[in-house]
Simulated assay, not measured.
Amino acid sequence: MTTPQPHFTLNNGVELPQIGFGVYQTPPEETADAVQTALETGYRHIDTAAAYGNEKGVGEALKRSGLARSDVFLETKVWVVDYGYDQTLHAFEKSVAKLGVDQIDLLILHQAYPKYFDKTIQAYKALETLLADGKVRAIGVSNFLPVRLERLLAETDVVPAVNQIEVHPYTQQRELQDFNREHGIITQAWSPIGGLRTYSDGDTPLTNDTIAAIGKAHGKTPAQVMLRWHIQEGRQVIPKSVRPARIAENFDVFDFELSAEEITRIDSLEQGMTMVPDELDLDAFGIEVPEA
């Protein structure tokens, strides 16, 4: 039996497992098997998104698992084409139908959409309605910079429970993390081991000598060191893989602790390589979210 993992408590009292399983870029035909493996390993938080096109696979894995619905924390995201009050309410209906559930534990906006920020605000107000109606247990955002969060907080009533952003040793976004913390917003780290970015010199956090040395001292891999670093600094993490061995490795981070000196050494690896979400041409993505 896998030892139950610790949880973070969101700003509305809902508990979120410290480590989740992500399915970004996981092919729809591989999603059910990958999520099933994760659930068998002990993960109890699954993070998906309407734009990933694999919510049905997540739902299939949940069905196969035999686990009670209350045992698995499901998170998904509304894509920008479904922003707007009524559109976002319908986006929820599409997601629950694909996931095969009645309630979503955490529903978030996938991206700030500066070009249509009024629609972004209306989308968030729809999340507030879903929360008030008990159709979701918590709401939040992803890839929101402080300037966007400030406007959101000024024009809505519910403080986001999470802001899911890119964080790893080379891209730490400390100013944004500080803003989140000051407002009681949990930082969720996507790409927590830095595997989604291409570096010109071929170096990555996974091949960094400092991280490797810390891992060697603990008998852990660089990925495990980074995931532990996130957890000890108060971030929730969402690693991803379709390989059973790597899925298990990423979950095996609760039996060691980094020293303050080791954490400082990892903190010092910041390279300021932040992807600025506001600069993305979201219209060019061409992502449509079909009906269930």
Rank of each mutant, 00 (worst) to 15 (best):
I121M: 14
F144C: 02
D267N: 10
N180Y: 00
Y124N: 12
G272P: 06
F254H: 02
S200W: 06
V141P: 03
R151M: 07
I211Q: 07
P244G: 06
D255M: 02
T204E: 02
S200R: 13
Q224G: 04
M226R: 01
P146Y: 13
E93I: 13
M273I: 10
Y83L: 12
P205M: 07
N163I: 08
A68I: 11
G134I: 06
E128A: 15
G100I: 06
V80I: 02
G195V: 11
E30C: 11
L176P: 01
G53V: 10
E288D: 09
L153N: 07
A217Y: 12
V158R: 05
E182K: 15
D157L: 11
D209S: 14
E75W: 03
I104L: 14
F256G: 01
Y199G: 03
W190F: 01
T88V: 14
V81E: 05
T187E: 00
T207P: 00
K216T: 09
V225Q: 02
I165E: 04
T198L: 07
V237Q: 01
T221E: 05
G53A: 11
K135N: 03
K125D: 03
P277D: 13
I186T: 05
I287N: 07
A212I: 05
D86W: 12
K56M: 00
E75V: 10
S70Y: 11
K115I: 03
Q36H: 14
F21L: 08
